[in-house]
Design a protein around this nucleic acid. Structure first.
Length: 738
DNA sequence: AGCACGCCGACT
DNA sequence: GTCGGCGTGCTC
């Protein structure tokens, strides 16, 4: 009986599954599937998609318990060995189950139980009938049809993406032309070059840029990390493009460009497409539909896409001929995944480059201190771009306004108001930059100093006057504005603090003739709202922009000559040791917004600490001076990059099990005789979040190896602890904040 | 993580 | 009598 089953299914497959368990699972199969193939298997009472990670002739599992796979998907291209080994490394390093790590790195379509069909895209052109026809044969009111016809006439073949750029109603217009019998179509790769954009202009590189490109090229066949350090406007993107041009020319090789999780991908994509039109390019980011994502991922996997521009997750995209990795804005915090497997895409990219023996370029105006440190000690090559590519533009003048010494009106200092007035008179634009944190208005009782709290989080509710409600920015809880103080009965409650809405009202009062635009999460919630707003700024329809982080990067506003920074103190006084350097990076970036064309820019910063060395460094746009100061502090305080950290985070409905669990973890860790320092469990800044009581345990060591060895022993012990099912917990290696 | 099994309280 | 609360334990 058993023998018969064995004969029917002679092969044993090692299958990884999306379950929070260590190890892989054995299944029988009647075909010898190769590693990297997808299978559907029975798992307990349900079916699961798994990935074959290997084959065997025997299994440790009793034959009676061994099940057979339900089906396999061998028509799909198999995952390569590099994919497995990179995710194995990450699963180990970040203390995350291997199967879950593997499955999470796949496009969602490949985690579903159906065979995955990538969307097929087409390109279109005019056939003989169409070419013989003329524009005048189309009714004048059929604007879309006429536009498509003209474009096809001019460019020959167009992709769907090109047509979509002509008009949102292109499908209907094209269908009408098709109906006339004018159109031919053929399936293409979505990522093939854009014809509309192809205008390959080769700009001159300056000496620094050429040096950077040549340096990387000289060691193009070995693992070599480079820090490309260049201030805003110094032409980092041009360096990337020239480098890729040289690396990809005359071969079938591939390059990966990682970008932060912001809406800048389209701009970068357009630049790469027009500058490198001869190479097929795909993007991988969260705005793609699942079918597009699968298609682009497949193009990367098969090697058809020569350039992949993608966010965090695309660091895992299989690329058989990968020869170079670029990490743009490498300091950006969005490279760190903040749930499930808490990997850092920049660090994973470094590991990947090392294993492939290829160069990797990390670009930033304000590098992460770890990166800067590595460049200083010679582990990374340092490539500096000091000149601004737009030569006539000058560095902005940076001035501090001591808010404890000057007259203030509703959060605005007199010098700032004056400066705004001057720009208004000159017809120039201004930007008021707000750090949301210190600027959210709260509901305060003047009698007993009660402040409306969130019931589910240890945070304060934010007043939204327009909607007449109080809202928690952490959990989304919303309630009506209370009229009476629940603590002392005082009926006189006031919103205090200067929200973006309040600030807008104040400005309208002070500068009634100014056209003001507020750009924040509330005002850009509608789709495309941000694009429309940016367009309005470019068109000169706006005098004063009020905005948060969103405005710090990306677009150039040539007529913008003043940047006012309203709140710096909440970051300067924050207990989080990374808060000041994030503020510095932000200010470097906003300062870059001012005076980018031929007009001199001015940056006015309101602060109570005008003497802070951060502002001096900012004044000279001197990252190096700032970084060396901070690095000294870090070395004395024994913080990263001199020490390595890991954090166990835990949460539950009550604190008791959290406390118990973390206490156990701390004791277990200490008993291991590791050189690592194990702190006591503490409560984080945000003690309660979404109704969950939180706690955390910090561990610190002078090398990654020591920390890794500790975690390798500790995590299984934590998993085996009875409380581990009663609390939600995870391990965060190299945490960004705590 | 799911999902089943299992053993105790308030309902048609 | 049974519907359903969530504790415990397993998944090749």
């Amino acid at each position: 009986m058993t023998e018969q089953t064995t004969i029917q299914h002679p092969y044993i497959l090692k299958v990884a599954l999306d379950v929070p368990l260590d190890g892989v699972f054995d299944y029988r199969s009647d075909t010898p599937l190769q590693a990297g193939q997808r299978v559907l298997v029975p798992f307990g009472p349900r079916k699961q998609v798994g990935i074959v990670v290997g084959t065997a002739s025997e299994s440790d599992i009793a034959p009676a318990r061994l099940k057979s796979i339900i089906r396999h998907f061998d028509q799909e291209p198999a995952l390569d060995a590099e994919f497995f080994s990179l995710l194995k490394f990450c699963a180990d390093y970040y203390q995350y189950p291997y199967g879950q790590a593997l499955l999470a790195a796949l496009p969602a379509r490949l985690r579903q139980t159906e065979p995955a069909q990538a969307r097929q895209q087409f390109c279109y052109w005019l056939n003989a009938v169409g070419l013989a026809a003329g524009l005048d044969m189309l009714p004048a009111r059929q604007v879309v049809q006429r536009r498509i016809f003209s474009a096809l006439l001019e460019h020959g073949r167009l992709r769907e993406a090109d047509l979509a750029e002509l008009s949102p109603g292109w499908r209907k217009g094209l269908a009408a032309l098709s109906e006339l019998g004018w159109i031919e179509q053929e399936q293409v790769y979505a990522g093939l070059r854009s014809i509309l954009h192809a205008s390959s202009v080769q700009p001159e590189l300056n000496a620094e840029q050429s040096y950077a490109v040549q340096s990387v090229l000289q060691q193009r066949n070995e693992f070599r990390p480079w820090l490309l350090h260049g201030i805003t406007g110094s032409g980092k993107t041009e360096v990337y493009m020239c480098l890729l041009q040289a690396i990809l020319a005359g071969n079938e090789d591939q390059a990966l460009v990682l970008v932060p999780e912001i809406n800048l991908t389209p701009q970068l994509e357009a630049r790469f497409r027009s500058r490198l039109p001869e190479y097929s390019l795909v993007t991988l980011h969260s705005n793609l539909s699942e079918s597009e994502r699968l298609q682009n991922w497949r193009l990367a996997q098969t090697g058809a896409a020569r350039i992949v521009i993608g966010t965090r997750l695309s660091v895992f995209a299989p690329m058989p001929r990968l020869k170079c990795i670029i990490v743009d804005e490498e300091h950006d915090t969005s490279y760190k995944q903040q749930d499930s497997m808490r990997y850092h895409a920049r660090d994973v990219a470094l590991v990947r480059a090392q294993r492939r023996n290829i160069p990797i370029v990390l670009g930033s105006a304000t590098p992460a201190l770890e990166t800067w440190h590595n460049a200083q000690v010679g582990r990374y090559g340092l490539l500096s771009l000091q000149q601004r590519a737009v030569s006539q533009s000058q560095l902005p003048q940076v001035k501090c306004v001591d808010v404890s010494k000057v007259q203030m009106q509703d959060g605005l200092s007199l010098p700032l108001v004056k400066a705004l007035k001057t720009r208004l008179e000159r017809g120039e634009q201004s930007l008021l930059f707000i750090n949301r944190r210190g600027y959210a208005p709260v509901l305060l009782c003047n009698a007993c100093h009660w402040i409306a709290p969130c019931m589910r989080c240890s945070s304060r509710l934010v007043v939204h006057l327009r909607q007449g409600c109080l809202r928690c920015h952490h959990c989304g809880h919303e309630q009506k504005i209370v009229r009476q103080c629940p603590s002392c009965g005082n009926p006189d409650l006031h919103p205090t603090g200067h929200g973006t809405q309040r600030l807008e009202e104040v400005l309208v009062k002070l500068l009634p003739e100014a056209r003001i635009l507020r750009v924040d999460r509330d005002s850009t919630r509608r789709k495309n709202a941000l694009d429309h707003m940016l367009a309005a700024v470019h068109a000169g329809e706006v005098d004063i922009l009020i905005g948060t982080q969103m405005l710090a990067k990306g677009h150039d506003f040539p007529n913008l000559t003043l940047v006012g920074v309203l709140d710096t103190d909440s970051a300067l006084f924050s207990p989080d040791f990374r808060a000041t350097e994030r503020l510095f990076a932000q200010l470097m970036q906003v300062a870059g917004r001012a005076g980018r064309a031929d007009k001199a820019g001015e940056v006015l910063i309101q602060t109570t600490l005008p003497e802070h060395h951060l502002f001096n460094a900012l004044r000279g746009q001197d990252y190096a001076a700032y970084a060396s100061g901070i690095l000294q502090e870090r070395e004395i305080a024994q913080f990263p990059p001199y020490e390595f950290l890991a954090l166990v985070r835990a949460e539950a409905n009550d604190y008791a099990p959290v406390q118990g669990f973390l206490q156990f973890a701390a004791e277990a860790a200490r008993e291991m005789g590791s050189a690592a320092l194990v702190y006591d469990p503490v409560r984080p800044q945000m003690e309660r979040l979404k109704g969950m009581e939180r706690g955390q345990l910090l561990m610190q060591a002078s090398s990654r190896q020591v920390l890794q060895q500790l975690l390798r022993q500790l995590t299984p012990q934590m998993r085996a602890h009875p409380l581990s099912n009663r609390v939600r917990w995870n391990v965060d290696v190299d945490p960004q904040e705590f």
